[in-house]
Amino acid sequence: MRSPIVTGHSLPMGDAVAVYGLRQLAAVARRWVRTYAGRRIDENDTLALLTTELFANAVRHSRSGQPGGEVVIVVSKTGMTTQVKVVDDGPLEPGAGPRLKDVDVEAGEGELGGFGLRLVADMATRWGVLYEEGHTTVWFDIDRDDER
């Protein structure tokens, strides 16, 4: 079996890893973020949860989930803020991309969706989406709570 990690780098803007775009590798992304974020347990838990959601979205909704696809994860720390970027191989359809939508918890089982980005919006200090050079980056910041 080949390694789930395509490549890893330490960059001026943080640490980065490329993981094959397979749903079952979300756990690899989660563990990697916990290791490289190096924050308190509860902060690492939040970072790992949100990364897992964005990884799953990238695999499900972008070309990263197709054969040979990959998802790049970048973690950077600046003082009181940890930023995670999840970069996919671009949308499956032109003009498609991540968007925040209303979540209907009463919907039927086949209608579920939209919880991942909603979690990011609710739990992150800041977040956003960038489209550049055929790739989509969803990023989020978690500010450290100095009072704990």
Score class of each variant (00 low, 15 high):
G108N: 05
T78H: 05
E43P: 11
M123G: 01
L11P: 01
E133Q: 13
T136A: 06
G97I: 09
G114I: 06
H61P: 00
R2L: 13
H61G: 00
G134W: 14
V103N: 06
V74I: 07
H61M: 03
G108C: 03
G110R: 10
T81S: 14
R30S: 07
V28D: 07
K85T: 00
V33W: 08
D145A: 11
R39Q: 12
G69D: 04
T52W: 05
H61N: 08
R34S: 11
L25N: 05
E111M: 10
H9S: 11
F140C: 10
V84I: 15
D146S: 14
G69L: 03
T137D: 08
R126K: 13
T52F: 04
A56T: 04
G90V: 15
G79Y: 05
V84M: 12
G38C: 09
G14D: 01
G65Q: 02
G113R: 00
V74R: 06
A27H: 04
A56Y: 00
Y131P: 00
F55V: 06
Y36R: 07
G65W: 01
V72P: 00
G21Q: 01
I41F: 03
S3V: 11
R31D: 14
E111F: 06
T35L: 12
D122R: 11
G116T: 04
A48C: 04
G68R: 10
G95Q: 10
G114P: 05
G110A: 13
R144D: 15
G38Q: 13
G8K: 12
V129M: 00
P4T: 08
G65Y: 04
A16K: 01
Q66D: 13
